[in-house]
């Protein structure tokens, strides 16, 4: 039964390889079945930017000092640590191409100094500025913040070959008013960072945090090296 033997070898091997693939996919945050899914931007109508009418959408998300305590019970990556800070609820966002995206980030985490002060500058937003509202209600609109008081940054760039001109960097000031173990975002006070940007061409964009908020060497281990906490994707469709 030679053909059967070959067939059997192939079937067994392909099942094994498929099993391994399924295992890796089950660990993967890129899967649309990821518990918190892909967060789709809310449409707001149209806006006029530089004399052109473009769709306008809104995104709102938060930073958590501790990813266990988030309201929806954010499920951490199997390799992660529940005590790590995280963006949430989802780490994947979906926005339409060539449209105005208004992002509101609630910043709950404390922070420190950047290792490269360049990331304290706002770049890539409409007007090159962002609006920062501190927990006590003071609002400023500026193009840079203090590099020694940074909680996180939201830094986004395109996948290779998608839209190399696109770049977005918004620093999130440190929220010193809250203890580090703040776990209930709806109860606590937060720093609000609001900005708008023009999304680029269709494709995959990656975002991550450039403030070293991880562990070990140069604070770039742990949460910074693990996908899904301080990093994710923006799908421009």
């Amino acid at each position: 039964m030679r053909p059967l033997g070959i067939l059997l070898t192939f079937v067994v091997a392909l099942v094994a390889i498929g099993g391994v693939a399924a295992f890796f996919i089950s660990q993967s945050y890129t899967s649309p079945n990821y518990p918190n899914g892909v967060q789709v931007a809310q449409p707001l109508g149209t806006a006029v930017v530089n004399g052109q009418s473009v769709p306008h959408v809104a995104l709102q998300f938060q930073t958590y000092p501790d990813s266990t305590g988030s309201v929806a019970g954010k499920q951490v990556h199997p390799s992660g640590n529940p005590a790590w800070p995280a963006y949430g609820l989802s780490n994947q966002y979906q926005v339409p191409a060539h449209s105005l995206v208004t992002v509101t980030i609630r910043q709950y985490d404390s922070g420190g100094s950047l290792n490269n002060p360049w990331f304290a500058k706002v770049s890539g937003t409409v007007g090159g500025v962002a609006t920062f509202t501190s927990p006590d209600g003071k609002t400023v609109t500026t193009n840079h913040v203090d590099p020694d008081n940074i909680g996180h940054t939201f830094t986004m760039r395109s996948a290779p070959g998608v839209d190399s001109a696109f770049f977005l960097n918004v620093p999130l000031p440190t929220n010193a008013n809250l203890p580090n173990n703040q776990t209930n975002p709806d109860a606590g006070q937060y720093y609000t960072v609001k900005f708008s940007f023009l999304s680029g061409a269709k494709g995959v964009y990656a975002w991550n945090c450039e403030f070293p908020c991880g562990q070990m060497v140069a604070s770039f281990g742990g949460v910074m090296g693990a996908y899904g906490f301080m990093s994710g994707f923006v799908h421009v469709v």
């Binding site: 091997a13 094994a16 693939a21 890796f24 290779p160 494709g203």
Partner: peptide, 27 residues
């Protein structure tokens, strides 16, 4: 070789398209 080859297949499958979402970058 079976283990290594299986992993090689994962790599090559991810690279079929430029921005595949088969595996996340950490995996």
């Amino acid at each position: 070789f079976g283990v290594g080859g299986t992993l090689a297949m994962m790599i090559r499958t991810q690279l079929i398209t430029p921005h595949s979402s088969f595996l996340d970058p950490q995996t």
